[in-house]
Design a protein around this nucleic acid. Structure first.
Length: 414
RNA sequence: GUGGCCGUAGCUCAGGUGGUUAGAGCGCCAGGUUGUGGCCCUGGAGGUCGGGGGUUCAAGUCCCCUCGGUCACCCCA
């Protein structure tokens, strides 16, 4: 099916990555937005009829009411739809973590269902927000400890400058690429920008000699792009200008960017990307509203983290105490609840197994202490505490066990 | 959508040219202490050999179909 499950303990890395992003996004004033897993297909068709995502990767179907539904293939369109629908006051700064679906053959770093972390800002045209959004993504990669992630940026121009460039490109490709067959010519006619980012070796020569987008930028777009670059420079964020970076969606205007990792193998090396989409809200029936955002693939980020040897760590309590029960009454249950209520990670074995087997489980749990409940000590109102690291053992009054653990949990390295 | 490789115990894998009860390591469970883990020793559980069909006296081993996984192309997160 091209889907996959995420199980413990690997899922700890997911919690680590998602919470790191949530923390950073919150520091920038972004709130969480959650949109449905599916939308009317029209919502996604705004991303561009000539894109692969729409042409061949849409996971769509008819529901029982005959509606044409599509599972979300990307994160921006639903967020813009929600903006148009609810009209929150600008600037609207939101982040999300959500599954995306694309009907394509899976391979390493590419899945039919994959998760994206992302952020969007609507209602602001200021290049400062372009810089902020890029800095947010950049900072997140740094939080994770990724060092082999590079930023590439480009400007797609605005609606006033794009048509002239598009025409020039089309003329170039139709003239120089006649030998490449129908697919090339069709793309050249319909959307010549789509050819620019092709990785096909036999097309490269013609692409290399294509007209440059920079030569067609309007003054406004040029100034905007330069302001973005100045902002990145001021933050010390290294970036490379990639004149042929056009990205996979047709809605982009002006700033586009992509983060690539050389820790990932060749083709699937993008760990995040995004750009400005100043016309999208209007195309969805809302007021003219500039917007910018990005999406990052969680699975790819985790592959990159693994490759760089920096797996994200979840800030969650581990098991500190393991209760070994030789009484068979409710004592273990009560002590466990007291410990857990007090903020202590505590676990037990089930099924009335032998003390030996329970201690084996205690050892496996990683707990530093075992609390053993025996009839003899219980008779004088006490329990046995065993340090599983040092094998030291002592008796502690039953009613003092939680206090004892709270007092000793920070001590002794385990 | 196109192409390559692969599918044997929970995991990683052995199982020349088809031939009696399909194996190993790790993991799991139990015992070696009457109430005690990690090391060690002993034993045990666990497998429709992905599924279906076919060839054959006989198939995990050959053929076909199918499902699944994986990698690559296109392109992207």
């Amino acid at each position: 099916m091209g889907t996959h499950d995420v199980l413990p303990p690997e899922s700890d890395a997911w919690i680590g990555a998602v919470s790191a992003f949530a923390q950073r996004a919150a520091r920038y004033g972004y709130g969480l937005v959650s949109t449905p897993l599916f939308e009317h297909v029209e919502v996604f068709q705004r991303v561009g009829e000539h894109t692969d995502v729409i042409r061949k990767e849409m996971y769509d179907f008819a529901d029982k009411g005959g509606r044409h539904i599509a599972l979300r293939p990307e994160g921006t369109a639903p967020v813009v739809r929600a903006y148009v629908q609810h009209r929150p006051t600008a600037p609207w700064k939101v982040w999300y973590v959500a599954p995306n679906f694309r009907y394509e053959r899976p391979q390493r770093g590419r899945y039919r269902q994959h998760w994206q972390l992302g952020a969007e800002v609507l209602g602001v045209d200021d290049p400062a927000v372009d810089v902020e959004v890029i800095a947010l993504a950049h900072g997140f990669y740094r939080d994770l400890g990724l060092k082999r992630v590079q930023l590439v940026v480009n400007s797609m121009g605005d609606p006033s400058s794009r048509p002239a460039y598009s025409d020039a490109l089309r003329r170039h490709f139709l003239h120089e690429g006649a030998q490449f067959g129908d697919e090339f010519l069709e793309r050249a006619r319909a959307n010549p920008l789509r050819i620019l980012d092709s990785k096909r070796a036999d097309w490269q020569d013609v692409i290399d000699h294509a007209p440059q987008l920079f030569d067609y930028l309007s003054d406004e777009s040029r100034e905007h792009f330069e302001a973005v670059q100045r902002g990145l420079d001021a933050l010390g964020i290294e970036h490379e200008i990639a004149p042929r970076l056009v990205r996979g969606f047709d809605y982009y205007t002006r700033t586009t960017f992509e983060f690539v990792s050389d820790a990932l193998d060749a083709a699937q090396n993008a760990v995040g990307g995004g750009g400005r989409y100043d016309r999208l809200a209007e195309e969805m029936g809302g007021p003219p509203t500039p917007g910018i955002g990005f999406g990052m693939g969680v699975e790819r980020i985790l592959i990159a983290c693994e490759s760089e040897g920096v797996p994200p760590v979840a800030a969650l309590p581990g098991i500190e105490v393991f209760v070994v029960d030789d009484l068979g009454d409710a004592s273990a249950t009560v002590i466990l609840q007291e410990l857990r209520d007090s903020g202590v990670g505590a676990d037990r074995a089930y099924g009335g197994r032998s003390v030996k087997a329970q201690l084996k489980a205690a050892n496996r749990s990683g707990a530093r202490f075992a609390v053993l409940l025996f009839r003899e000590e219980a008779g004088r109102g006490a329990v046995v505490v065993r340090n599983l690291v040092t094998s030291e053992q002592l008796e502690v009054p039953r009613e003092q066990i939680v206090a004892w653990v709270l007092e000793h949990r920070e001590m002794a390295p385990s």
